[in-house]
């Protein structure tokens, strides 16, 4: 059964992050700013997604020294990214004792066919998904947290919204499907029947479902939380904006008070300029990060 003690501990940490904001940081100073603004965790990486897009080249796991610096600086959990399928990078991150590993489409994939067998690692993993089938395949491989892929580094929330709505709607459909038809659903979703049956019965994913990929403003955070996200990841949106500390605080506030218009207004005041952003519909297919992985 997938809900064993090992899995419960991994998903248990994700439970503690609910209602919070996980922020991308590229050095210890940014990590401190994130923690002081109220981040529940930081994601250590070499470059934020917007810069990965701009600079091109191969994007890999962050340098060990950088991750160590960040771990030594903050008391909140530290996550780090490994390339899709790069289980050796994941082994390094596990030995380093990061709290969560993100098998991420933001980095250049190392394997176009295989994702990491995450059950083999005591360290919990988060993975991106665009729909329910993809989410359940990652959970079957051992992911203990799912985040929408959205379109990282774009500052355009449209893909995060599309993916969150897709997952929620597909879950809803399963809950009204007769038990004897679930096997066909599993076939269509390309996901294990055991997980499909669990979702049909419970009406939710067996792991926390967070949102990522294009969230740049407090209102964006409120939007995805209202659509059913249980926490948000903000990548380039904070440290590519004019006033990162203020924006980080505002996004934290908007995530907690996502359904309160007055608090949301307070969060949106005097923020300075947001990151510039890219209209995802104008991007070439080959520039999309979300199509990496399956």
């Amino acid at each position: 059964m997938f809900l064993d003690n090992d899995f419960r501990l991994k998903a248990g940490l994700a439970e503690q992050l609910k209602g919070g904001v996980i922020m991308d940081v590229t050095d210890a100073d940014q990590a401190r700013i994130a923690q002081d603004a109220g981040a529940v965790a930081v994601m250590a990486l070499e470059r934020v997604p917007a810069d990965i897009r701009k600079d091109g080249g191969v994007a890999r796991m962050a340098s060990i020294r950088k991750i160590r610096d960040i771990m030594a600086t903050v008391s909140i959990p530290v996550m780090a990214k490994a390339r899709i399928g790069h289980f050796a990078e994941a082994m390094v991150l596990q030995a380093l004792k990061v709290d969560y590993i993100d098998e991420s489409e933001v980095l250049t994939p190392a394997d176009e066919e295989h994702h990491i067998d995450k059950r083999a690692f005591p360290t919990p993993f988060v993975c991106g998904a665009r729909n329910l089938g993809e989410a359940l395949r990652r959970i079957a491989e051992g992911a203990a947290m799912i985040r929408t892929k959205g379109e990282a580094g774009s500052g355009d929330v449209v893909e995060a919204v599309r993916h969150m709505r897709a997952i929620r709607e597909q879950i809803r459909q399963l809950t009204v499907t007769e038990r004897n038809a679930l096997s066909t659903c599993a076939k269509n979703l390309q996901a294990p029947l055991e997980l499909v049956e669990w979702v049909a019965k419970e009406g939710r994913l067996p792991v926390p479902n967070f949102s990522a990929g294009g969230i740049a403003t407090p209102a964006d955070a409120s939007l995805v939380m209202s659509l059913g996200a249980e926490a948000v990841f903000v990548g380039s949106g904070i440290f590519k904006s004019e006033d990162p500390s203020r924006r980080a605080k505002a996004i934290v506030k908007a995530t907690t008070f996502f359904s309160d218009p007055d608090k949301l207004l307070e969060a949106c005041e005097d923020l300075g300029e947001p990151m510039q952003g890219l209209d995802v519909s104008k991007l070439d297919e080959s520039e999309l990060l979300q199509t990496r992985g399956w």
Binding site: Q16, L17, G20, G38, V40, S75, I76, V252, T256
Partner: peptide
């Protein structure tokens, strides 16, 4: 449970 630093700030 959660992050006590985040809760304190809020």
């Amino acid at each position: 449970g959660g992050e006590s630093t985040t809760n304190l700030i809020l």
